[in-house]
Simulated assay, not measured.
Amino acid sequence: MDFSAVIEARRSVRKFNQDSEFDHHKVQRAIDLALLSPNSSNMQLWEFHRVIDPQKRKLLAHFCMGQNAATTARELVVITITPQKWKERAKRNAQVVRDNFQSQSPQRAARAFQYYEKLIPFLYRNDRFGIFGRLRQILCFFLGLKKPIVRQVSKADLRVCLHKTAGIAAMTFMAAMKDQGYDTCPMEGFDSKRVKKLLGLAKQTEICMVIGCGEGVPEGTYAPRDRVPNQEVVFTH
């Protein structure tokens, strides 16, 4: 199936076949591809939790408000963001730059070191009501008077950024599943507190979405696809 066919064929399917064979290895393959998705500063602050065990899957479906896409799923994938891991990822990225670019391009390596060892800590330690938040707001105001500057760098902005990153990975995952002949349904309706407890997630970890996986049945697609006219959402400048 070519890319355009995959995208056109992918639908949010809310009911899955309970009798057909299901290859869990294909879920892992789709996750492997999702991990290649672009992400902010290559920080990779995401996790993919595969729920295969029947009892845990049943509990998770219950915590997803008993949605058909959860109760009939052959496997559930929970995609999360992990902002608390920013230090180790920044350190890792800086080391990768050292290993790959130090001998080839010292100037490029120096810029990358500065980014991961100075700017990233400054941004990720930012707190709207703390010293880093106030300092950032002041610097942003004065520097922005003379030149363009990134302004969406509050703690809330970074949280949005990580969820966007996880959303890109989720779309890659769902497209990869469709390419292998399986359907998916992303879900936002869930009890995050109970889901985090079920999966043993850290306090700072946030759930982006839960994705039901399986072979869709005809009645699992509730209606023909409907989109607003392109001219309402696409603009040329």
Rank of each mutant, 00 (worst) to 15 (best):
F3Q: 11
S4Y: 04
V6L: 04
I7T: 09
A9P: 12
S12G: 02
N17L: 09
N17H: 14
D19P: 00
D19G: 12
S20H: 10
K26N: 07
V27R: 13
V27P: 09
A34S: 09
L35S: 05
P38C: 05
N39P: 06
S40L: 10
S41V: 11
M43I: 04
Q44Y: 02
L45G: 03
W46H: 13
E47L: 12
E47T: 14
R50P: 03
I52R: 05
K56S: 13
R57G: 10
A61I: 04
A61K: 11
A61R: 11
H62E: 13
F63C: 01
A70Y: 00
A73L: 01
R74E: 07
E75N: 06
V78R: 07
V78T: 09
I79Q: 09
P83N: 03
K85A: 09
K87A: 05
E88A: 15
E88K: 05
R89V: 10
R89Y: 03
K91A: 08
R92S: 14
N93W: 00
A94G: 14
A94W: 11
R98Y: 14
R98N: 14
D99Y: 13
D99G: 11
Q104K: 13
Q107T: 13
A109F: 15
A109Q: 06
F113K: 08
F113R: 08
F113S: 06
E117N: 15
L119S: 00
L119E: 00
P121R: 06
L123S: 07
L123D: 01
Y124Q: 04
R125V: 06
N126R: 08
D127F: 02
D127E: 12
F129I: 06
I131K: 12
G133K: 00
R134L: 14
L135C: 08
R136D: 12
R136N: 14
I138Q: 04
L139C: 00
F141C: 08
R151K: 11
Q152A: 11
V153A: 09
S154D: 09
K155G: 04
A156T: 10
D157Q: 02
D157W: 07
R159C: 11
L162C: 11
L162F: 05
L162H: 04
L162N: 01
H163T: 11
H163R: 11
T165Q: 14
A166R: 09
A166M: 13
G167D: 05
I168Y: 08
M174E: 02
M174G: 04
Y182S: 01
Y182H: 01
D183W: 08
T184Q: 00
P186A: 10
K197D: 15
L198Q: 08
L198V: 05
A202Q: 14
K203L: 14
K203T: 12
Q204N: 15
C208G: 06
I211W: 10
G212W: 13
G214R: 01
E215P: 01
E215F: 13
G216W: 14
G216D: 12
G220P: 02
P224M: 07
P224E: 14
R225M: 01
V228S: 10
V228P: 04
P229H: 14
V233K: 14
V233D: 02
F235K: 03
H237G: 07
